[in-house]
């Protein structure tokens, strides 16, 4: 499974992106930057949960209520992004654990 298949297959992924595109511009910017951040950090929720689609749900609600995106999540976007993956393990964690289990010769 790949990141592009996050939401069960490419068609859903495209539908997901269409939802992102329907958001107001400020929301789109913040969504994209958060997604990019998650690609680097690599939380397991990216592929195993509904982290991104849940985020779009939340953004759609905020936009529908007529709020600006920073009004909704605060100025510290990174703190918000980290809050969403607070207890989540990352691919790097999993990798590091596998290294410890199989020590190098």
């Amino acid at each position: 499974m790949g990141i592009q298949d996050i939401i069960e297959g490419k068609r859903q992924w495209r539908a997901h992106l269409a939802r992102v595109k329907a958001l107001p511009p400020d929301y789109q910017i913040v969504y994209k930057e958060i997604q990019r951040y998650y690609f680097k950090v690599g939380p397991l929720e990216l592929t195993e949960g509904d982290l991104l689609s849940g985020l779009v749900d939340f953004f759609e609600e905020g936009a529908a209520a007529g709020k600006g995106v920073l009004e909704l999540i605060g100025d510290d976007v990174a703190a918000f992004a980290d809050g969403l993956i607070k207890d989540s393990r990352t691919y790097a964690d999993v990798y590091q654990e596998s290294v410890k289990q199989k020590p190098r010769k």
Binding site: G2, I3, Q4, K32, Q35, R36, F39, K40, G42, L46, T47, Y91, A92, V94, Y95, S98, K102, R104
Partner: peptide
């Protein structure tokens, strides 16, 4: 030792580049 556990990391890096 094995590539499997690195695959998601490669995938994330590639996704970042694509995007």
């Amino acid at each position: 030792f094995t590539g499997r556990n690195l695959m998601p990391i490669f995938d994330g890096a590639l996704g970042l580049l694509e995007e």
